[in-house]
Computed example of a mutant assay.
Amino acid sequence: MTSDTTATAIASGTWTLGDRTVHRIGFGSMRLPQTGPALRPDAVPRDREQALRVLRRAVELGVNHIDTAAFYFSPLRSANELINRALAPYSDELVIATKVGPARGIDGEWTEHARTPERLRAQVEQNLRQLGRDHLDLVNLRILGTDSVAERFGALAELREAGLIRHLGLSNVHAHQLAEAQAIAPVVCVQNPYGIGASAEQDALLRLCGDQGIAFVPFYAIAGAGRQDGAGETEPAQIQAVARAHGISAAQVRIAWTLHRGPHVLAIPGTGDLAHLEDNIAAGALRLTAEELALLDEAHTG
């Protein structure tokens, strides 16, 4: 399944984010502003026209769920502004999800997370300006640690009531934080690190979301422990075997396995390369056999 340009995101099936229906294979924009490792002050900006082509091609191939953040930027390039330039005026079918909490200065260095209602509102307004929107489809509150999310999520719930945000989600959270947020306002998705080799806690949270009809949106599903630096370690033998059997990449196997974890699981693989984009989307059409899933589950629990 190499660069099958006939495969579209439609083949991955659909799920709902609140009242919005999206294809289960989407696009993550973290890698779009730069080449190489992301989220670094010294990142090398990606060619602007290439980034715009990738975004437009993703939508041509049926992607209608794009994940972004105002802190996704490199010198000269901002993911939000690239999305605005490439895709505005936006289709009614397109859902753009962003996240708030983390912050970077104009020099690219990380600063303290936004924790007050004032700072969170400022981040929401920054996303609105950069994307050229009068409201945000979905805002995920990204958390560090295990402390209470009530004040921060409550501040976003107020912005939802004011019409600036349509739906709310959580990112990098634990089960008790999800329950705390749900007592304040509806949570339509949980966006957590997940993929082959993820912890038992993340498996349990994925199942909990499925039981409650909440979308579970893994990030770093391909990169694993490499996180924003990307995949770098040798792939387990089980992944290599499935990849050889289908004539595809290990990354495509990882995406397909993730989607097989439940109908509520969405994928948002990111890339700045057209060929990789088409491969990622094609992975949404891959159907793994019970034997292949059992083999990959060995690598997962391993």
Rank of each mutant, 00 (worst) to 15 (best):
I214N: 09
I248G: 06
A225G: 03
P41T: 09
W257K: 08
P75Y: 04
L170D: 01
G108R: 01
A237S: 11
Y220D: 01
V149Y: 08
N280Q: 13
A251K: 09
Q34M: 11
T289V: 03
A250G: 14
R48D: 10
N172T: 10
R160Y: 02
N127M: 12
L286N: 09
F153S: 04
R56M: 00
H260S: 14
A198G: 06
T301C: 03
A43M: 08
L128S: 08
R166Q: 13
E109P: 00
V100R: 01
G270K: 10
L206R: 15
D297K: 13
I83W: 05
R166M: 00
P37V: 08
A282G: 15
T8W: 10
I96E: 10
I255Q: 05
H23G: 11
E93F: 07
N84C: 13
L136S: 09
L136N: 11
Q228S: 15
Q228C: 03
A251G: 11
G105E: 14
H264I: 02
T35W: 00
E60F: 04
F216G: 05
A162F: 09
E233G: 03
A237N: 00
A51C: 06
N127D: 15
L82I: 03
A183V: 01
E125Q: 12
I268K: 04
R129N: 09
R142G: 09
A114Y: 07
V63D: 07
L156M: 11
A223V: 06
G26H: 07
I222S: 06
L288I: 05
Q202F: 08
T8P: 12
A150P: 07
A283H: 11
I96N: 08
T111E: 11
N80S: 12
A70T: 08
I281S: 04
Q182E: 15
V242Y: 02
G284M: 04
I255M: 07
L293D: 04
L120E: 06
L156H: 10
A231L: 13
R46S: 14
L296Q: 08
D19T: 14
L286E: 11
Q228M: 13
G108M: 02
D273K: 09
D19Q: 14
W15S: 15
E158F: 02
L266D: 03
A237T: 10
G101T: 01
K99G: 11
L82W: 02
A70Q: 13
H174C: 01
S199T: 13
L120Y: 07
R129V: 10
D19G: 12
V22T: 07
G272I: 07
Q182S: 15
G210S: 09
T289E: 08
V265M: 07
I214R: 05
Y220T: 01
G247C: 12
L94H: 08
V63Y: 08
E112Y: 01
V54Y: 00
L293F: 04
Q182A: 14
T14D: 05
S199A: 05
A215K: 03
L144E: 14
A155H: 06
Y220G: 00
I184C: 10
A185G: 09
G284Y: 04
P117V: 02
A215W: 04
Q238L: 03
I196P: 04
A221R: 04
R56W: 00
